[in-house]
Simulated assay, not measured.
Amino acid sequence: MRRALLTLCLVSAGCDQMSHQPRYDSYERSTLFADGTSMQAPPGGTIGRDDPALAAELAQRPDITPQLLERGQQRFGIYCSPCHDYSGSGHGTVPARGFPQPPSFHIDRLRQAPSRYFVEVITTGHGVMYSYADRVTPRDRWAIAAYIRALQLSQDAPAALLTPDERARLEAQP
């Protein structure tokens, strides 16, 4: 018993390598990099999350153009459809596998919400949805919001917007 206890003490004393790892403090000299410092400048083109240019871009709603809607459809397909599905009903593949189901974009509350609401949710997250601010540029957030509006209109367009030919084709469908 005494031998097992001694062995256990010796083994556990030799396992404390995590608290004694070699590391560098900020601004400490280092031989790791050619300039002799341990702290390196960010790569060229890096933008901070709190960059004023990003905030300004997010504050400006772009004009809605076919190109913006097309970009929104593409970004929606990449980032939103796994949970919200391609129609925006909230029946994507992720909730089908047990994750909480997001609300449909076609409910009254979200139909009445301003477009900025969707941009803010993409930026900061909501409920179990995490922020996409590090993945989706401000302009693309606006493009997604515009595409969500197009989805909402596609599911609840007033018949008055249809031409007589379109209305006849719609009524002829079974």
Rank of each mutant, 00 (worst) to 15 (best):
A157M: 14
L151N: 08
Y132A: 11
Y147W: 15
D85C: 07
P100S: 01
D85Q: 05
R97K: 13
A113Y: 03
A34M: 04
R61G: 00
F118L: 13
R49K: 10
V136G: 03
L110I: 10
R29M: 10
D50Q: 08
I107W: 03
G45R: 05
Y147T: 07
C80G: 06
Q60W: 03
A34G: 00
V128W: 08
Q112N: 12
D35W: 03
D63W: 04
G98W: 05
D35A: 08
L58H: 11
D108I: 07
G77L: 06
G98V: 10
Q40V: 09
D140T: 04
D140R: 03
R135Q: 14
Y86K: 09
R109F: 11
L151M: 10
G125R: 03
L153F: 11
S154T: 05
P114R: 08
D156C: 03
S81V: 12
D85M: 04
S131E: 05
G88R: 05
I122E: 01
V119L: 07
A41Y: 03
S154R: 15
S30Y: 02
D63C: 00
I64E: 15
L32P: 00
R97F: 08
F105H: 07
R135N: 12
T65A: 08
P103K: 07
S115A: 15
G45F: 03
Y117R: 08
S115R: 13
D140N: 10
T163V: 05
V94R: 02
Q155A: 15
T46K: 09
L110Q: 07
P82V: 03
Y132F: 15
C83F: 02
A53P: 00
V128L: 11
C83N: 01
V119I: 10
R71Q: 14
Q155E: 14
P52S: 03
R141F: 01
L58T: 10
R61K: 15
I107Y: 04
D63H: 09
A55C: 00
L162D: 14
P43I: 07
T46P: 00
P66A: 06
G125W: 07
P158R: 06
G72W: 02
I47L: 14
Y130Q: 12
Q101A: 15
P95T: 08
S87V: 11
